[in-house]
Each structure stands twice: as structure tokens, then as C-alpha cells.
Amino acid sequence: MQTNRTESFSTADRHEFLNRFHPISQEEFNAIQEKIKSKTLKRNESLIRPGQVQKQLFLIRSGVQMCHYDQHDKKHVIAFTYPPNLCAIPDSFSEQVPSRYGFTSVTASEVDCLSFEDLQLLYAQFPNIETLFRRINEKLLVRLLNLHIEFRSMSIEERFTAFCQRSPHLLQKVPHKYIASYLGIDATNFSKLFNSIRI
């Protein structure tokens, strides 16, 4: 689930956001917050590099980040994250295996970090927290399936328009070459679309 917010995301906002997936009590939310450590990222700083194991789940407080696959000195952008989203490479974090992908801060960012070990402890102590994160994963899978169908069935003009309607703020915050990569559009065609389509 995404919103169009990229400003700083408060603790109270986070509780409200998590409750959209599955209600948790104040005690359960406080237990999550007690395990969290905050981190500030510079522009273009890596959260995860290919080959690293993602040992922490990132809860985005501010800024924009991107997941990418690097090949032949080129970044192929897979996803963007921003508040109030969670940031994870699912197989690396869930299975604690080296990632094939990178996660990089596109802008200066603030993230809260929850370690894999602490999350497992929370699951054991609070079954409702485990239900919460299962529901988040289910919503993510549905969203990824919808995006896959969208990319397969839409023309480049339709993909561009859908992206702009869903995340218009990214056009001002993210270099257009990364958006073009994410949408699977040639940079020249992206420039033409950007200058010709009114959103």
C-alpha cells in the first residue's frame, strides 16, 4: 500500500498506517517501537548492496528509495519506496540469504530499522504482530501482481499515465532516467511523454 506522501512520517501516523492492514493494540505497537533504531541516509547511499543479506526491515520515515538490479553498469529499477512504506527485499530478508538486488536512497532519507531477530521475537511474543506482517505481505503480493499485469497489458503511454496518477510527486524527486527504467520506457520516449502528456 502506498500514499503520495514523502514528508517526514510520525510515530502516530505509523500506528494508523499499520492498522489499515490489521488492527494492533497500543501495547503491540509500543513493542514494535521499542525494537526500532533510526538511521539517516544521504542521497545515493546504499541500504542494501547486491550480495549482502538484508538483516533489517526498513520502515520509511522520509525520502524516496529504489530497489534495482544492476547489470552491465546499468541500474534496472524494480520499485520505489517512500513514506509510509516498508522497504525490504523479500527473499533476502525472509530467508536471510544474499540479495540479488540493491536498495539505494534516491533522496536524503530517514528510516527506522527493525532487525530480523527482533521481528522473530515479536512474532513469538505477540501473534497479532505476526498476523499484521502476514497481511502486509499479502497486500504487497496483490499489488505486485496488479503491476505485473499493468506492465504487460498497457501501452507505454498508458503505463506513464498510470504512474503519474499513482505517484505524481516522484516526477519532481526522482531522476527521470530511473522512472523510465522502472516503466520499461526508452529515455527518449520518456522525455517525449513527459513533455506531451498532461496529467
Rank of each mutant, 00 (worst) to 15 (best):
Q71A: 07
E27T: 10
E130D: 15
G51S: 03
I32Q: 03
K35M: 05
I32W: 05
R14L: 03
M66P: 08
P90R: 13
H72N: 14
Q26S: 08
L122K: 06
S99D: 09
L140P: 01
S25V: 10
L141T: 09
D91P: 14
L121W: 10
I78T: 10
Q52F: 11
K35F: 05
S10P: 05
P23V: 02
I36L: 14
E27Q: 14
T131K: 07
S8G: 09
V142I: 04
R5H: 04
L144T: 13
S38I: 05
R5E: 06
R134G: 06
E138L: 00
P90H: 05
R100C: 03
P90L: 09
Q54S: 12
C67N: 05
K139V: 00
I89Q: 13
Q52E: 15
H22L: 02
E138R: 05
T81G: 14
T40V: 08
S115D: 01
N85A: 08
T104G: 00
A124V: 09
L141S: 14
R61H: 14
N137K: 06
P84F: 00
D73H: 11
C67P: 00
D112V: 03
D70G: 10
V111R: 10
N146M: 00
Q65W: 09
F9R: 03
R143A: 04
F58T: 09
S94M: 10
Q120A: 13
V111E: 06
Q96R: 14
D70P: 09
E130L: 08
L121S: 14
S109A: 10
N4F: 02
P84C: 00
A124I: 06
S8M: 10
I48H: 03
G63K: 05
R134K: 12
A108L: 00
N146S: 02
L140D: 07
E130T: 01
F17L: 04
C87V: 01
K75I: 01
K35A: 07
H72P: 04
E27C: 02
A79E: 13
K42Y: 03
V53C: 06
S25T: 15
L132H: 11
E110K: 11
S10T: 15
N44Y: 10
F93A: 07
M66I: 09
A12T: 15
G102T: 02
S25P: 09
L147M: 08
S38K: 10
F21S: 10
I48T: 06
V64Q: 07
P98T: 04
R5P: 02
Y123S: 03
T11D: 07
F58L: 05
I136G: 05
R43F: 02
N128G: 04
K39Y: 11
R43M: 13
